[in-house]
Structure formats: structure tokens, C-alpha cells
Design a protein around this nucleic acid. Structure first.
Lengths: 347, 347
DNA sequence: TGTTAGCACTCAATAAGTGTGAGTGCTAAA
DNA sequence: TTTAGCACTCACACTTATTGAGTGCTAACA
């Protein structure tokens, strides 16, 4: 059987109605609200067909029908109209994002906040995975309490600081810092191998009086810090919106699910080749998301995927609006990241 | 009427039972479970008295009774027995906390995590308010994209980095950094007035070619950074536990309430003179907490209150256990903070 | 005089029965 | 092909017992 024009319009009407009301939709409502010029009986026949084809589901005999996962998929693929975000909204979010233009995690948090405000669904965002953080400066400072502080600054202004339990006087700390800086400054994090770190060994042992064990510790520590520099964070906002479309038990399971950040990071990474990824209901392999939809976008730096921004909501969410919002915000992130990392080189 | 020995034991029994079951407690249960050697009728009489005295509440005529806020208050003040935390648990948390001994916010997050695991209630914790952060080093680094990065390091290893939208070449950045460092190094944050910052003005304008406006901006910016160094953060963990003792609507209100971090910071600051603070039900002035209890402890550095750790749970929570857990964890925090900030000066 | 067995009473919670109405599928006529 | 009409279904809301945990009161008892 074919999805002819009429069936399509009816399917569209059912989806629209269900998105608004979250109640099963009957043939009478479709016949009245949409001037298709058809009686409820005709629509009833068509809806029976649509059910047979797997696009509609009847919760029970005397109820209306709700869209199936397949219907949403069809809708998203072929029927969805472009949603236009209001000029005012765009201006507002532009303003909000550009206020904090210089602090990476502030931008990411802000972006998440805006997304959650715009969609009113749970928002997930990762900090960018910058595989090539260029190191601007390294420094070692001696602290009270027998500790030293290693600071690594990247070209783009990301600061990694990590405390080493090693007692050094100010002079030794400065000296060691100088050696580290000399060795690593200007390099990209993904070019720094452990061999590179180890190449400092000789110079350090010549110029500083350290036990072999302490030396190894220091080298390991530096390597760790460099690796951690590439770590991404993940932020979740507006978890409470889950309560709007789930009962307590399901909500609890969702909350528990959202605690596993590692898993979430994996999950939110959709297909890196398509900007937007939509997973509807059982398309999510994870049990906890079986009756949710996950919409994510990749934001990028220099045309390479850098991180993800996404939204978890009910299957009956307004996909058009969510996709438009995510696109809009990710584009802004792209712009800001470009400014931060590539800079206005032209000027 | 007096709260004689027998009434006391009955009240205790009701509270105990209710803490376990969360169901109104009847006279029969008390008479059977606790071998007071009294019939249910006698207990009934006593319970009627206790209700009259305001310690028990009857939800409806044919129901058992539940403890009132006053009962919990009486219990907490006079009846609560010391809860002993298992040696194993203590060992475990000691281990967990000391793993991350050197990164301030890691410790605070870890402490929050442990508290939530131990009590299974929503945990709130603030980072310490260190009114006297001694500045170890200041630095200014030029970045790509027309920005500069100000880094301030304290004696204890707290790093504050803040990006300034001012384009400087490496040399100027280093020079400006040097001036800032010379002026502020060794000072305590609360000794730094704006006058102090302004005292750099002359030297900066002499040695660097900056517009007057840019100069003012820089000074403001530095002052801001210093002020922010004293800012405290607040972390919330295990919000989902709210769903265990609240219906969806109340839970939603609670979630919204917990979003206002500023308000929360104020709220969690109990009496600084007593280590533990317990607010039961309507003792909380805030509407949203009217049927919760908030238990907080002050943790301290050098015998001065530095921050708070607290738990929000149902009024029927196990106060003894919560207080013991909070005490235990805060003592560990105290120890670690001491090591970090005062150091093993004796050695 | 305090304690307790006994009994009538209360009332939330549960179960069982009963409409109601929104919705259906099918049929037959337009 | 469409649609009016009709019998049918079934969740939901409503009403009406039924149950049982708990009470307060009274009178008898130690």
C-alpha cells in the first residue's frame, strides 16, 4: 500500500494534534479541525490503513490513535517543515552568548542554559574535544604543605592546573618549570608522546637533586596533565523537565541513567558526518531511552566536529523547533570557537 | 502535663517506627513490638495525651499517629542516641577522600559524593570561603584572538584564570604581568583594596603604551579577578532522592528551588557558632522546605568556619546517622584543609 | 487509681458495580 | 468513492458496598 497524499495529510494531522495534546487522536477531531473536506468515517478508514502500515497505534479498541516510532521517523525524514526561530530570540541568545565570549566553559554552560530555556527539555552538552591544543606556557610553582603546582596554558587560554605532592623550594620549582616549558612550549598536545616527556629526564637530573623515583613521578605527572588537557566535560541541565512526561519510576531510572557521564558521552556522539542526529524511541539502543527521543547536533571548530549539544525529550517533542534551536545555537558556538581558537587572523 | 518516662518511651517508639515505615503508627504496633508491658488501650491513652501536648498528629480519626515537628525537635534535642559509624565505612571514606587530597574542588566534590552515598539524601556543599588567600604569583599571557589571560595563583594552590579582551604582544603581556605580580604577590586577598590596584596605574602607563580607557579596564579587571578568587561554589548531589519522599509536583518545586544557588548559599549558612544545625519542617522559613529537614555542618579551617556541608531529606530521616555522617566527613575535610593551607609547618 | 478488655464507631482505602462517551468497524445507500 | 448510520468496545469517572486498621469510651479488674 502506498502513502498517498491524503494518508500523508491525515498522518501529519494526527502527529500535529498528538504533539499538542499528548492524547490519542480520534477521527472526528481530524475531520473537524483540518478542513480536508472528509467525513470522520473516511478518515477512520484511512487511519485503519495507516495502522496496518505501522504508522499509527491504537492503545485500545475504543481509543483514538497515536503515532508510532515509524511515524515520527517518517515525519522527521520527509514531512517536517523548517521551523523559523524568531528574530528576537536569535538576538537575545546572541547577546547572552557573547557576554561570556572568552571563557570556554562559561560559553558551553551558557549554551546549555539557552538550549534548555528554548526547548524546555533536558540539555546535554560536551566541552570541545580539541585534539590540537597548542601549548603556550608551562609553569611550576611551589606551594605550602609540601606540594607543587603545575600550570599549563594553551594558546586559546585553557588553563590546566594540577597539584603534585612534591616539596620544592621556589628556585627549584622555577628551574623545573623552565625545563618543562622549554620542552613543551609551542607543541600540540597530540604531538606530545611519553618519549617527548622522558627526553627531559637528563636535563632535570643534571640540574636538580631528585631521587630517581621522584623523577619518574614527575614525568608521569606531566604526561597525565597533558592528557587531561584533552579531556572533555559534559554538562546536563534541566533534568527536572523529565518529570513532565514520565512517571516517578521512569524518571528515577532516567536520573540514574544520566549520572553515568561516560556512557552519556558515548551516547551523544552520533554520526560525525551528519550535523544533526535524531534517535526516536526504540532507535535508542538504551532501555532507559526507549520512550524518549534524543536530538543532537555536532558543533565544530575549523570544520571538524569538536563537541555535541543535545536534547532529551518525549517522542512527541516538536522536532522542527528543537532541530532549529540546536542548529542555531551550535552555529553560534562554532563562530565563537573560531574567534577563540583561529582568531581574527585576517586583521 | 509532664513528659514522664513512659510517655517518652512511647514517643520514642512512635518516632522509631515511623522512621522505618513512613506509615502512621497505631497503638497495637507499639504495644506488640516494644515490650513496655502495656496493653494497646493504655498506650492509646498515652498517645492521646501526647497528641494533646502537640507531639503527635493524627492524619484522620481512624489512622495511627505520626510525629509532629515538635516531636522531632524534642527527639533531636533530648532523645537522640549517638550513632556509631562503622569502622569499615570510616576507613573507606578516608581512603576515598585522601586519594584526591590536593585538588580543592575535587575534595569538595568527593566529600559531597560520599555524603550522598552514606545518607542517600540530597547533598549540598560549598567550597571554602577563604577570606585570606595569600597570593603566590600573578601572570599575564597573551593569547590568540586578541585576548590576554590573567592567572593568579594562591599560596594554597588555588588558580584563578580569567580572560581579558585586550590584545597584547608577548613582551607587553610579560611586562604587565610582572608589574601586577610585583604589586600583589605576597598579599592577602582581603587586604587588596581597589586603591592598591590603582597604585599600579602610574607604572603601567609609564612602561606600556595603553589608552587611558584600556588602563582603567585592566585595573577593574584585576580587581574583579581578585574578588572572584574569594567566591565560593556550591555543589548539589543526588537530587533524585527527592523523588523517594515527594510526589511529582512537590519534587518539581524542590528542583526549581535548588536551582537558585545564591539563595541556597544563604540558606545553608546556619548558626556559625554551633557545628551542627538542624532545621525541621516548618523551622525552615522557606515554603519549599516545609516538609523537609535540612541538616548542615560547618567545616572549618584553623578553627574558623570555612564552608558548609548539608543534607536535605524527609522529616523522618535518621537524624542520628545523618549527623554522625556529616560530622565525620566534615572532620576529614578539616584535616585535609589544614594540611593544604596551614601545611605541616612543624616538620 | 491505674490498667485493660470489650465494644461501638470512624474513615481511608479498596473493590465492585454502573453509566457515560469517545471512539471504533462495518454496512448500505448516495 | 464517500458517508450516514448503527452496533459495539472499553477506558474513565462515579457511586456504592466492604473491609480493616485504628480510635475513644466505658466498665470491670488488680
Amino acid at each position: 500500500m502506498e502513502l498517498n497524499e491524503r494518508k500523508l495529510r491525515i498522518l501529519q494531522a494526527v502527529i500535529d494534534e498528538y504533539m499538542g495534546t499528548a492524547e490519542p487522536v480520534g477521527s472526528r477531531v481530524i475531520s473537524k479541525k483540518n478542513n480536508l473536506g472528509l467525513s470522520s468515517a473516511t478518515i477512520r478508514n484511512e487511519m485503519a490503513d495507516l495502522e496496518e502500515m505501522g504508522f499509527l497505534i491504537q492503545p485500545h479498541t475504543s481509543a483514538g490513535r497515536i503515532p508510532s516510532d515509524a511515524a515520527y521517523r517518517y515525519y522527521v525524514n520527509s514531512m517536517m517543515k523548517r521551523y523559523k526561530i524568531g528574530v528576537k530570540t536569535i538576538e537575545q541568545l546572541q547577546l547572552a552568548l557573547e557576554q561570556k565570549i572568552n571563557q570556554l566553559d562559561s560559553i558551553i554552560k551558557k549554551a546549555s542554559h539557552i538550549t534548555s530555556a528554548l526547548t524546555d527539555y533536558t540539555t546535554i552538552i560536551t566541552t570541545p574535544e580539541l585534539k590540537s591544543n597548542s601549548i603556550k606556557k608551562c609553569e611550576l610553582v611551589s606551594l605550602s604543605g609540601g606540594c607543587s603546582l603545575l600550570i599549563i596554558i594553551t594558546q586559546a587560554g585553557i588553563v590546566k592546573n594540577k597539584i603534585l605532592t612534591l616539596s620544592l623550594d621556589d628556585a627549584s620549582a622555577a628551574l623545573l618549570g623552565e625545563i618543562i616549558n622549554k620542552t613543551l612550549c609551542g607543541l600540540c598536545t597530540n604531538d606530545i608522546t611519553f618519549d617527548k616527556i622522558q627526553s627531559m629526564q637528563n636535563e632535570i637530573s643534571q640540574r636538580l637533586d631528585l631521587s630517581p623515583k621522584a623523577l619518574i613521578n614527575i614525568l608521569d605527572f606531566i604526561y597525565e596533565a597533558i592528557e587531561e588537557l584533552d579531556d572533555t566535560d559534559i554538562y546536563i541541565e534541566n533534568e527536572k523537565s523529565i518529570l513532565k512526561y514520565n512517571d516517578i519510576e521512569k524518571a528515577q531510572k532516567m536520573f540514574t541513567f544520566l549520572e553515568d557521564k561516560k556512557n552519556l558521552k558515548k551516547l551523544i556522539k552520533g554520526d560525525p558526518n551528519s550535523k544533526v542526529n535524531i534517535k526516536i524511541g526504540s532507535e535508542n539502543k538504551v532501555e532507559e531511552l526507549k520512550d524518549c527521543s534524543l536530538v543532537t547536533v555536532n558543533y565544530s571548530l575549523n570544520n571538524k566536529t569538536a563537541g555535541q549539544l543535545g536534547v532529551i525529550g518525549p517522542k512527541r517533542m516538536n522536532y522542527a523547533k528543537v532541530v532549529a534551536s540546536l542548529n542555531c545555537i551550535s552555529e553560534h558556538i562554532d563562530k565563537i570557537l573560531y574567534q577563540m581558537y583561529i582568531g581574527e587572523s585576517g586583521e
